[in-house]
Amino acid sequence: MPEPLFELIDVVKKYDERTVLRVKDLQLDGNKIYAILGPNGAGKSTLLKLLNMLEKPTSGRIIFQGVDLNRAGEAARLRMRRQMCMVLQNTYMFDTSVYQNVAYGLQLRGVRGVELERRVKEALSFVGLSDYGSRRAIKLSGGETQRVALARAVAIRPQVLLLDEPTANLDPDSVALIEKLVRRVHESTGATVLIITHNLFQAQRIADEAILLYNGQVIERAPINQFFTNPQSEITRRFVSGRMVY
């Protein structure tokens, strides 16, 4: 069996004594799309931030490609983080041009000159915003902002793409476009995708597996069809049938 991409062992995250995440054992394999599901406050964003090293676990171990994130030095952590990219729940655009926003992650990785220009243009054309390079990024609409955020991420060609509710508050066309793009990134680069969503149809459309978080705990993790047609946990059953009150 190949080494898992991520392995979480007894991971606990507390904010001021309050436990918001408690994962006993979770392994994530490469080359898959995972839908992270669960009510608000379940700990979904916290989970992704831990994987992206934006937050540190209060205790426990997170292992990425065989390396314990918290035992690694600063340089090694940065190297590992640069193999991932996260699109945050509150998308933030730097107040420069769209071009500069997309170029930033590449510049951090030492990409320069014509190669830089080529990859920024490629990423912008990928999300259908080829003409947007010189636009001011903070003036874009919600849908355009999400597309630039995705372009910023795919430009980097990450092995792991962490998406925190990338289609929340978007119109149906934009949602469909983002979904299509996410699938295409996954298929063309083999990137592992973790996508948080409240849209169960979306999860069914794009994910290979679903992970349900509830009160900071992993309730169920299953192949997507099984998750919806034959849930093992009572909580999952209530969740997928929309009977969960939250």
Binding site: M53, L54, R81, R82, C85, L88, N90, F94, L108, I156
Partner: peptide, 16 residues
């Protein structure tokens, strides 16, 4: 909070 985290997600070191 947001600008710092966004830069981090794109691969910035703490100083960057």
């Amino acid at each position: 909070k947001l600008a710092m985290d966004t830069a981090r997600t794109l691969g910035a070191s703490e100083r960057q």
